[in-house]
Amino acid sequence: MNEIASFIIAKYNYWIYIVLMMIGLYAMIVKNNLVKKIIGMNIFQTAIILFYVSIGTKRGATIPIIYHGHGDGSHAVHATDYINPLPHVLMLTAIVVSVATLGVALAIALKVYRRYNTLEEDEIFTQIRRK
């Protein structure tokens, strides 16, 4: 029991991202409303972003910026002292991507609304079938 608990707690960051991802996936698949689907999609993307960010951390490390870096060179930088910046940088790009996707998705949802006057998927389907 103890082992399982420590297993779960020690890797809490992964568990969080998995839970978030599943919430997002659930919303995308099950929800009837298109905007809710979009929200699910965003949660899904955010979960992965959080995963990336969490893997860059280190205990007791700081951001990788050198204070008073100019000068005598006495500030030899140890890798243990700063967190890995690369995943964070990558996630900046991923955020941009997710925003772009969100934008397109919302635009399409808007077009759907203008055409069918509803955002509920089942109602749209009945309209399509009726035609």
Binding site: L25, M28, L34, K37, I38, M41, F44, Q45, T101, V104, A105, A107, I108, A109, K111, V112, R115, I124, I128
Partner: peptide
């Protein structure tokens, strides 16, 4: 996605599904 969505009619819904699944 955007190019598909430029058609009218059922393209919107098809495109929306593509966005969701493609993003996954």
């Amino acid at each position: 996605y955007a190019m598909i969505g430029m058609n009218s009619g059922r393209a919107y819904l098809a495109c929306f599904n593509y966005i969701i699944i493609g993003t996954i």
